[in-house]
Design a protein around this nucleic acid. Structure first.
Length: 485
RNA sequence: GGCUCGUUAGUCAAGCGGUCAAGACGCUGCCCUCUCACGGCGGAAACACGGGUUCGAUUCCCGUACGAGCUGCCA
């Protein structure tokens, strides 16, 4: 069987939003699942929308997510150049367009903006443009004349409005449209650059792309591409149109609308592996109920025939859950390294940061969660004494004051402030008094943390903040209670 | 407006003519527990609607509704 070749062909207009990333991922997976090649092509034919540095972002994103390409601008395997502006400079698009003109499948169009404007109509509040084939009827002398006089021109596809066109998509099946619906789209723009519509067909053919993987937004223009392939007499590739990823309002994700990019998510404290994993499951699901996948596992299990047709909402909440799963499974050294910047944002005192990282690891979903969780280690927050009341622990301010006063001298005399020793010490007190654990633990933890909830038990907290600070905080608690009651 | 595609719980998503209609997130009850989280066991929650076809439709066909995409010298 022929080796599969897929391509990811982004236009360098900014950060990569997750819909784009997912398309890249699927193109990669389809190729790699069958040991094929994954190619990067930069589609920079829109000179107006180019963004400085965007190509670097694309490289960086693909590298970090592990979508290693076999060919690309930096890795020419004989199908280069892989950047459309460079290909344009060599004149290939114009050359191929001229072939179509000779076959009467395309034609020069000299219509200016003003004339085009007369063709636009407003339907349902939207501008609709249907070209009237005006320039198709120019005589060859007129065309010659205009060309010689350097009149600006575009080259349009000549679509015969008779009949229908059918193309096959692997996900959506056969799709048929009336040719009368197909307008004479522009192939070559007046600045000499090809449009996406033309460049993608020429390049996919020249680069021997076997599977065209792209977003569902291209579904309705695919018949026009098919007619281009037919006009050239080229073999039509396998089409795999991916269902759209939408926001909560069910609108297509796009950077123009400011939707989250891969890098935005990283900035928000998400892990690359979680993002890739999550996005893979938007529009595809495995045969079993597995949810956590490494990239290697995705390569092994991914079967594009099982992709879904309907759009998927990007659910930020589930992404967070998945990120939390990755946090828990993460190698501790790496977790420690990544969490340190966040820990240091709130902890400046000399404390066992490794212990803090350990505590927090199974409790966070994204890194910034760490900050409000551990800030009390640094400074005791102000708190209301009502926090000492806990129905289930059977504690109130009175009982808490009593316990705190009794436990204070015990803790002052205690020397070993390790978790185990402290715990044994508190339990001993509990047992001699015949209390329930919580009856003592709750008030002490409250005094020592000033918080309703903490990522650690009392004794773990005391171990981290140390003896002096523990005693100090308990004294603060006692005086607060004495004043408040 | 036209064309194309889509429609299983709030979300992701199994299902591919006969199921008590999986699973996950979220929500929620209980257990575990030095609070919280983790973990464990439960719960509520869905086949858009109307016609066919069929002994039987979530599943096949046709309409309707709703949603989305396209309708650019953007991709």
């Amino acid at each position: 069987m022929e080796k599969i070749r897929t391509r990811f062909a982004p236009s360098p207009t900014g950060r990569m939003h997750v819909g784009n990333l997912r398309t890249a991922l699927y193109a990669y997976l389809i190729a790699k699942h069958q040991d094929g090649d994954f190619i990067i092509r930069i589609e920079d034919t829109d000179q107006e929308r180019l963004v400085e540095g965007a190509v670097d972002i694309i490289y960086r994103t693909l590298e970090k997510t592990g979508l290693k390409h076999d060919e690309g601008p930096d890795l020419d395997k004989g199908y280069g150049p892989y950047v459309q502006s460079e290909r344009q400079a060599s004149g290939i698009y114009l050359e191929y367009a001229k072939q179509l003109i000779e076959k009467k499948e395309a034609y020069y169009c000299f219509c200016d903006k003003e004339r085009l404007a007369t063709l636009t109509q407003i339907v349902a509040g939207k501008e609709i443009n249907v070209y009237d084939k005006h320039c198709l009827h120019l005589s060859s002398q007129e065309v010659e004349h205009n060309l010689n006089n350097k009149l600006p021109y575009v080259i349009r596809q000549n679509n015969n409005p008779e009949g229908t066109t059918t193309f096959h998509d692997e996900i959506y099946g056969d799709i048929t449209v009336d040719n009368s619906e197909l307008d004479d789209m522009i192939l070559i723009k007046s600045d000499g650059f090809p449009t996406y519509n033309f460049a993608n067909v020429v390049d996919d053919h020249l680069m021997k792309i076997t599977h065209v993987v792209r977003g569902n937004e291209y579904l309705s223009s695919s018949p026009k591409y098919n007619r281009l392939y037919q006009a050239f007499g080229w073999e039509v590739p396998v089409y795999v149109h991916c269902p759209l990823i939408t926001d909560e309002e069910h609108h297509k994700l796009s950077k123009r609308c400011g939707h989250s990019s891969y890098e935005d998510l990283i900035d928000q404290g998400f892990l690359t592996e979680a993002i890739v994993n999550f996005v893979a499951l938007l529009g595809w699901s495995p045969e079993d109920n597995k949810e956590i996948f490494t990239l290697e596992e995705l390569v092994k299990d991914f079967d594009f025939h099982k992709m879904s047709k309907s759009p998927a909402v990007f659910d930020y909440t589930k992404l967070k859950w998945m990120n939390g799963e990755y946090m828990k499974r993460m190698d501790f050294d790496r977790f420690y390294e990544m969490s340190l910047p966040y820990i240091k944002q709130v902890i400046s005192k000399d404390m066992n940061l490794i212990k803090i990282a350990e505590l927090v690891k199974s409790r966070i979903e994204v890194f910034p969660d760490i900050i409000p969780m551990i800030d009390f280690f640094e400074t005791l927050p102000e708190y209301e004494i009502s926090m000492y009341e806990h129905k289930k622990m059977k504690t109130d301010t009175q009982s808490s004051l009593l316990v705190l006063k009794e436990i204070l001298p015990i803790l002052e005399n205690h020397q070993d402030y390790s978790n185990d020793s402290l715990y044994a010490c508190l339990v001993e007190y509990v047992e001699t008094k015949g209390f329930k654990n919580g009856y003592v633990m709750w008030p002490v933890r409250t005094a020592v943390s000033g918080k309703q909830m903490t990522p650690a038990g009392v004794t773990e907290i005391m171990e981290i903040i140390g003896k002096d600070e523990s005693i100090r905080r308990i004294k603060v608690g006692i005086s607060l209670l004495e004043k408040g009651i």
